[in-house]
Simulated assay, not measured.
Amino acid sequence: MQNSKFKYSVAIRTVGKAGDKYIQELQSLHNQTVKPEHIYVHLAHGFERPKEQVGMEEYIDTPKGLVHQRAAANMVEEEYVLIIDDDVYFPEDAVEKMYNALRKYNADGIAPDTFPSQSMSFFSKAGAYLTNTVKGRKNDGWAIRIQRSGAFSFNSNPEKGAIYPTESAAGTAVFMKTKVWKAIHYEHEVWIDKYPAGTFGEDQLMYQKIIENGFKLLMWYDSGVLHLDANTNKASQKSYDKIYYRAMSQYLTWYRCVYDLPRNTSVDKLKNQLAYAYRFLLSCSVRLVYSILQFSPRFLTAHIKGNLDARKFVKSEEYISLPHFILSPKE
């Protein structure tokens, strides 16, 4: 282990209901070989402060919403920030190792692999492809890559303990340079919070904003960092509303992060459109089968309507008036 001297603070978003998992997280933070300067807990407005207390948590009343609460990490002044959910366990040397990795690879942020897609069963991998064109790749020295369709592909055989560059990661935890976090102005994306929690992949948008604005992100495999409640945010596939909003999320994430970028030529945009069309048609076929089995067309219609309404939204004044995804120095 390198002789690491650095300062960081922790930003946790919560609604105060993680219970024992929250306690495990706090205790693991207090046990770090390099202690945080502050542990800021961004508690959604209107929710009760957790009774659990370990020692140095500072509670901040924050507008409810995944983006509002994550963007509240802007208050950190130390050189580094650890941005996490409220149910993550860290081995005692995890933060120090992440810091050392940033220095070794000259990177700006690092996320532990808390959702190991490469470990999914064959049937889960098949389902991920059919519903969302998520697929594995051979080990090419990268972790997650974003496809033209907006879906991701994952390294199906990473080396044990590897640290690879990545284009996305799970939003569970990320350790990064505070100046980089502030530079991407994640608070510009609070428009996402009008969608129900658990339906919008705001973590992918966050990471792609980091990448597309020229910063370097890493993923750390077999880190020992654990997401203690990995099923918390999974939306039911049987809910019309959640299928509808998930469909909107797919289109809007693709449009903002992949299609509507200044670097894209007209040929790039055409390729992106064709890739998304394939993703859309494949997922429609799955929804069609499910609708037939359930004797109801609503599962298919929800998916189609979500995509159509998302297409309308990107043409609206509300969307057009959003700050650019690729930021100029003045933004």
Rank of each mutant, 00 (worst) to 15 (best):
K216Y: 01
I60E: 07
E37I: 10
I39Y: 03
T178G: 06
W142N: 09
F175T: 00
M56F: 15
N106R: 11
D108V: 05
N74S: 10
L217R: 01
N231Y: 11
Y129G: 08
G46P: 00
A197G: 09
S117C: 13
M206Q: 11
K209I: 07
V34Y: 07
F299I: 00
T301K: 12
S239A: 05
F47S: 08
W254I: 02
E92A: 11
E331R: 06
T33D: 11
K5P: 07
S149A: 10
S153P: 05
E52W: 09
I39V: 15
A143P: 02
E77A: 11
E159L: 12
G46N: 03
G171N: 00
T172W: 04
L102C: 05
K64I: 13
N3H: 14
V88T: 12
G161L: 04
E57H: 09
L288K: 01
L26V: 04
W191V: 06
Q208V: 07
K160P: 00
G201R: 14
R103S: 11
G136H: 06
K135G: 07
G46I: 10
S28R: 08
L218P: 01
V81I: 11
H30I: 03
V67S: 03
F200N: 01
Y8F: 10
K7Q: 14
K17V: 12
L270A: 08
A71I: 05
Y195E: 05
R70S: 08
T232Q: 15
V267C: 04
E58W: 08
I146Q: 09
E52H: 12
Y276E: 02
E189K: 00
Q294I: 04
Q208I: 02
F215A: 01
R103Y: 09
F47M: 09
D108S: 02
M98I: 05
L281W: 10
E48N: 15
F325C: 09
A44H: 03
K125M: 10
V180F: 05
F6Y: 14
P262K: 03
V81Q: 01
A128I: 04
A44I: 03
F115G: 06
S266R: 14
L226V: 15
E189C: 08
T172C: 10
K97P: 00
T253F: 01
A44S: 14
S283N: 09
Y244W: 08
E187K: 09
Q250D: 15
K125H: 06
E57S: 11
K216Q: 07
K104F: 11
K315R: 15
V10T: 07
E77V: 11
M206W: 12
L102H: 02
G127T: 06
D20W: 10
K104P: 02
N3E: 13
Q147S: 08
S316A: 07
K160R: 13
S153C: 13
E187I: 13
S296M: 02
A275G: 03
E48T: 13
Y89Q: 05
K182G: 02
